[in-house]
Amino acid sequence: MEYSKVREQLIWNLRLDFDPVGITFVYDESLESSLPITHRAKVKITYCQFLTAARQNRMAFYMKPEKLLCQNAWPVFNFRDLEQEADTKRHLKYLIDKDLAWEAVQQKARLEKGCKGIYMAPIDFFDKAEIKPDLLFMICTPYQAYHILNDYMGGMKKPNLSFFHTPNSAVCSGSVWAFNNNTANMTTMCAGSKTSGKTEMAYLNVFIPGKHIEPFITQQQKRVAMGEGASLLGKGSQPWPGLDVCKGCPLFKFEAV
């Protein structure tokens, strides 16, 4: 699979505003030297901020635990054990109820222990990497997400999908849940991904398992070849979304009352 072609196809067909990003959870430290890394963080930043730099500025990172700032993300990646008092307190502002807050923390997705770091880069960087992406991550509009997930369902022969929403940890827990459950996931922004991760108000987080990228991409290619076009391009493979919409529809008429 040529990931550079995956990037081109997704950006062109879906008119993505940002680069699709590949994410890999690295358990073998010896792989670090072979990763195509372009930048290192000088100080601790959040998982969301690493991903923002990857999708908006085409930077490639290997995020080690000591460079991760967000305390909500630490237990999600199993970089530390849960701390009942502190972790409950972090969720009280959302859920108010202490027992519910602690239960929510415990039920978040958690990565298997032993992850040494996380590699994040624009998806085409994986053409030069010795590893494959565990996840394809995209920040997109709801309409783009709708068509991404339709192509995913078609490619994977799934008639429907379920998603995993938590009080926060939209991107970190959202990533790990998709990876652990080997299925697509979609989350809203959380407070952290809104502020630190620069998820604008109209965007969603979408995660596709790395092993499912090929059937997902192939499904979209098939629809283009059939003349249906990529979903966002309108009926009959119009060159830009909306060209098939009747601007002067006679059904929309109003009168004062």
Rank of each mutant, 00 (worst) to 15 (best):
A86I: 12
W102A: 08
P122E: 11
G114F: 15
Y119V: 04
Y143M: 05
L111K: 06
L111A: 05
I96Q: 06
D127V: 00
A145M: 12
A101E: 05
K132R: 05
Y146F: 12
C115G: 14
L135G: 02
D81Q: 15
A104G: 01
Q106K: 14
P133W: 02
Q107S: 03
K116Q: 14
P133G: 07
I118H: 11
A129G: 11
D127Q: 09
A121F: 11
M120T: 15
A121S: 13
D81P: 14
Q107I: 03
A129Q: 00
Y143H: 10
L82Q: 05
P142W: 10
H91Q: 11
K116E: 15
D99F: 09
Q106D: 04
D87C: 12
A101L: 03
F125T: 12
K89M: 13
E85A: 15
A109S: 11
E103A: 09
L92C: 05
R90N: 13
W102T: 00
Q106V: 01
I131N: 00
L136G: 01
L136V: 00
D81I: 10
D97R: 02
C115Y: 10
E130N: 10
R110T: 07
K98G: 01
L95E: 09
M120D: 10
A101Y: 06
P133T: 02
R90H: 13
K132I: 02
E83A: 15
V105W: 10
L82D: 13
I139R: 13
L100G: 01
G114S: 07
A145F: 09
Q84R: 15
Q144F: 03
Y146L: 14
Q144T: 07
K93W: 06
W102H: 08
I139G: 00
M138L: 00
D81T: 14
A104Q: 07
M120N: 03
Y119T: 13
I131V: 15
K108C: 10
D134T: 03
V105Y: 09
K89H: 09
L95F: 04
A129P: 08
I118P: 08
G117V: 11
Y119L: 06
I118M: 05
L92A: 10
D87W: 14
A104D: 00
E85W: 13
L111Q: 08
E112C: 03
Y143A: 00
W102V: 00
Q106G: 05
D124M: 07
